[in-house]
Amino acid sequence: MQDIGVIDSAEAATAALAPMRTRLLAELAEPGSATTLAARLGVPRQKLNYHLRQLEKHGLVELVEERRRGNVTERILRASSSSFVVSPGVMGRVQPAVSTD
């Protein structure tokens, strides 16, 4: 795991900055599954799976292990970095405020 991950696309920044996903990234400093996170956070597992897939799609979480439990495969994930920064280039150009005095 990297110490600081740089988010360099607007799509990844949007994914990471959603409140639920920000919370998941913090929780995944230690590896966990949707099932363990659901129990800890009081959120339905299916909802967490959706958010985890979005984070994984943008490389913000990584697969650590897959465990077979009966007919279900439990995926253990962790954050790919201990913290993230958004590259200034992703934010676009900021226009200076114009005074109307």
Rank of each mutant, 00 (worst) to 15 (best):
D3W: 03
G5H: 00
G5F: 00
V6R: 13
I7V: 01
I7F: 00
D8I: 05
A13L: 02
A16T: 00
A16H: 00
A16C: 02
L17A: 11
A18D: 14
P19C: 02
P19D: 11
R23P: 06
L25S: 00
A26H: 15
E27Q: 15
L28Y: 00
E30H: 02
P31W: 06
S33N: 02
T36N: 08
L37A: 03
L37K: 02
A39T: 14
A39V: 11
G42A: 05
V43G: 04
V43K: 10
P44D: 12
R45K: 14
K47L: 10
N49Y: 04
Y50K: 07
H51Y: 07
L55S: 03
E56D: 11
K57P: 01
L60E: 00
L60C: 02
V61D: 00
V61A: 01
V61E: 00
E62M: 12
E62L: 09
L63D: 09
E65H: 11
E66I: 07
E66H: 05
R67N: 06
R68Y: 03
G70H: 03
N71P: 05
E74F: 08
I76M: 14
I76P: 06
L77G: 04
S81K: 02
S81I: 02
F84K: 04
P88Q: 09
V90D: 05
G92L: 08
G92Q: 10
Q95E: 14
Q95L: 14
Q95M: 12
P96D: 12
P96S: 11
A97D: 09
A97V: 12
S99H: 04
S99M: 06
S99D: 10
D101I: 05
